[in-house]
Simulated assay, not measured.
Amino acid sequence: MLAGMEGRDGMRAADADRAAVADRLRAALDEGRLNLYEYDERLQQAYAARTYAELDALVRDLPAVAPPPAAALAEPVETTPARPATARWLAEVWMPYLQVVPIVVAIWAISSLFARDLLYFWPGWVAGPWGAVLLVRTVTGLAGGEPRRWEAERERRRRRKLAKRARRRALEAGGPDD
């Protein structure tokens, strides 16, 4: 049995194994088991690790991941549904247009109703040029890989926000004399 474990320890780790260890380290940081410095140091080592033994050493002193309490399972973890980056990018690009154009059309319709006559359709001056600009942006963005860059930037901001929150927690836990 020990020989089997030694064999596994020497095996090369995959990217998925490194990501799993990174997730476990992030959970330990959130639980307060690691401070930000330890987390950063171990995270760098995790992504540089080549073997299972190197990865196991990074989490050896951490307890096994506990399942979330029943109350936490009832709460939604993420409010954003899992959609491909392209769909999220398109929604971000087009959503203001899809919200504003119906409003200006409704204003035109109400004005026409009160005037008891069909007034000049001025919402076309809002919807037309804006829609043309968005169409060009959509075509050039999809052709140039903009959704991937947008998603990467979004993830970078999310990670920066989490790190900032973790630093704040670490400072609060350390007290004012640190």
Rank of each mutant, 00 (worst) to 15 (best):
D117W: 13
L162F: 04
G174W: 06
L142P: 02
A106I: 11
A152F: 12
R159Q: 15
L171C: 11
E92L: 11
A109M: 08
R157D: 00
R154W: 13
V101Y: 10
E151L: 09
K164W: 14
V104D: 01
P123D: 14
I110T: 06
L98G: 07
L98N: 03
P129Q: 01
V139H: 08
S112R: 06
W108P: 00
P123W: 01
A127L: 08
A115Y: 02
R159F: 03
R137I: 01
Y97T: 06
W150E: 10
A106W: 00
R154N: 10
A132H: 02
E146G: 07
R167T: 04
D177V: 04
L134G: 06
D177A: 14
A152D: 10
V100A: 03
L162C: 05
W94K: 03
S111A: 15
A109P: 10
L171Y: 14
V100H: 07
R167C: 01
A173F: 11
R169C: 00
G131M: 00
R168I: 13
G128R: 02
L135E: 06
L113M: 15
G141L: 13
R165T: 13
D178W: 13
R116K: 06
R167N: 02
W150R: 01
G174E: 14
G131W: 00
T140Q: 13
L135Q: 07
L118M: 15
F114I: 09
G144S: 15
R169Y: 06
G124E: 14
L119P: 09
A115M: 08
W122T: 07
A109T: 08
W130P: 00
R165N: 12
R149D: 14
V105P: 03
R165K: 14
A170L: 08
A163F: 09
V105S: 06
V101S: 05
L135V: 07
A143F: 11
F121G: 10
L119Y: 05
V139Q: 12
E146I: 10
R158P: 03
W130M: 02
V136E: 04
E151I: 05
G174S: 08
E146T: 09
D117H: 15
L135C: 05
R158F: 07
V105W: 01
W130R: 00
A170Q: 08
E92S: 15
L171P: 04
V105C: 01
P147W: 13
L134T: 03
